[in-house]
Amino acid sequence: MTAYSPTLIWVLIGVIGLGTWLIRVSFLAFLGRVERVPDWGTRILRLIPAAVLAAIAAPALTHATGSFDLLTGRFAAGVVAALVAWKTGNVIATLTAGMGALWLAQALV
């Protein structure tokens, strides 16, 4: 649970919302001045989702207890979910398998 004030959270939501809209409108609004994304930009942009998603997900699984520990229900459930995500590419199947595996691990331990 956050210790941040509701005011700060409103500011964060507003800044993220405005920044996101500016990214979305960028080329739609300024086409003509900037014709297209340069090649180096495309090379970087296309790797961002994979890198950022991995960077957010990994510590939640490897540091479930706060420090590095792979013998946790969460890490095991994360591995199960990753296998399902890899094989099916389906959000619902991944969530179901991952939550199911975690609940099973919690029931067993």
């Binding site: 989702p49 994979a50 998603l53 991995a54 957010i56 997900a57 939640a60 699984l61 969460r74 459930a77 994360g78 979910a81 990753a82 995500a85 389906n90 959000v91 991944t94 969530l95 991952g98 939550m99």
Partner: peptide, 8 residues
């Protein structure tokens, strides 16, 4: 984190 795994 599971949703991040699903999107990854």
């Amino acid at each position: 984190p599971l949703v991040f795994v699903a999107l990854l």
